[in-house]
């Protein structure tokens, strides 16, 4: 928070710095707009609900911030989420017989989901770095693979978690500690951890360096391939965490699970001020971006003025405006 205050005061001193705190202004504008549209918008219930819903995309987007800062891109996260959800459900349903209906089954399922996320990220990272193939192509490929695998496992339909397990697992999405729902708590923890790792550690600094200029990174004794692969691994782990809190929400996974999540995650990252071609990333910006995307849908739900079907239009416009504002500032600096 002190950092925020400091950046705000520096922004005031110079001319208006959209790049630094534009996302916060936009968020503030959205909150004011939402309140005007419907006072129920600022109710605690609605706010909690919105934050809970933004947790999936938010957690994935924190991972995406690392990948994009280091100059990469991961298009496979939506499919990967569906795939991990599917496998997790199959595993838990299978383990029911041996481990019984209880937390042991669920925890095993969760642990394995993290392992799968780790491995899936590792594959994206290794193929990109060792195979010297552009990340866009690699993750476009794995995106198709995971999507079709989950369709195959579900036999074209839906994979459902056994009802008995679902009853126990449910609270992970629906319950709260000290009034904070578990998904929001998870989101906050991932965001804080992401902030520290990206801004305070050597690994984070190396991500910035690689995204800025891979050659300079190499000539500065940075293990470029290792760091890049690690960003995809982090992304995979973030996807698995998001999946762990997503599965108890519906208790099922199908071919349509997580569709377009990759684009929402990238959108959140970009709205937050991270540079798409790498070299500059901002976790708190990403968090604001993810919340904004959910908020837009929520406001449209609360008003009759604009059809809910235009959600995508408004989101799209906001993404473009956000980037335009940030670039306007770049140019003035030069």
């Amino acid at each position: 928070m002190t950092e925020l205050v400091r950046s705000m005061t520096t922004a005031m001193r110079f001319d208006f710095d959209f790049k630094t705190y534009g996302p916060f202004l936009a968020l503030l504008a959205l909150i004011i707009l939402g309140t005007l549209v419907n006072p129920a918008f600022v109710s605690e219930a609605n706010m909690t609900n919105m934050l809970t819903r933004s947790a999936f995309i938010g957690i994935i987007a924190v991972g995406a911030t690392f990948v994009i800062t280091a100059g990469g891109i991961d298009l496979s996260v939506g499919s990967m989420a569906a795939f991990i959800a599917g496998i997790m459900i199959i595993i838990m349903n299978t383990l029911l017989g041996t481990l019984g209906v209880g937390w042991l089954t669920i925890l095993t399922g969760m642990a394995l989901s993290v392992v799968i996320g780790f491995a899936a990220g590792m594959i994206n990272g290794l193929v990109t770095t060792r195979g010297k193939i552009e990340a866009f192509i690699v993750t476009l490929g794995t995106m198709g693979i995971y999507r079709s695998l989950v369709t195959y496992f579900a036999d074209g339909g839906t994979l459902s978690l056994d009802f008995s397990i679902r009853e126990i697992y449910r609270p992970i999405y629906y319950d709260a500690v000290l009034g904070i729902p578990y998904p929001v708590l998870a989101f906050a923890l991932v965001a804080v951890a992401g902030y520290v790792v990206l801004n305070k550690t050597r690994f984070g600094r190396h991500c910035f360096a690689i995204g800025s200029n891979e050659h300079v990174a190499k000539y500065s004794a940075i293990h470029v391939n290792r760091v890049k692969t690690l960003t995809y691994v982090l992304q995979g782990i973030c996807v698995s965490i998001a999946t762990i809190i997503y599965v108890p929400r519906l208790g099922s996974a199908s071919a349509s699970t997580g569709v377009l999540w990759e684009l929402e995650a990238i959108a959140a990252v970009i709205i937050g001020g991270t540079v798409l071609k790498g070299g500059y990333g901002r976790i708190w910006g990403t968090v604001v971006g993810a919340i904004m995307l959910t908020m837009i849908g929520n406001i449209l739900n609360l008003t009759d003025a604009i059809s809910n079907y235009l959600n995508g239009t408004v989101q799209g416009a906001i993404i473009i405006v956000a980037v335009l504002l940030q670039r306007g500032n770049w140019r003035r600096k030069k």
Binding site: R205, F208, A209, S212, N213, H215, V216, K218, Y219, G279, Y280
Partner: peptide
Amino acid sequence: KGCGLLMQMQLRP
């Protein structure tokens, strides 16, 4: 420029 310094980054890093 190509291999030595990160031109868009500050002096400290």
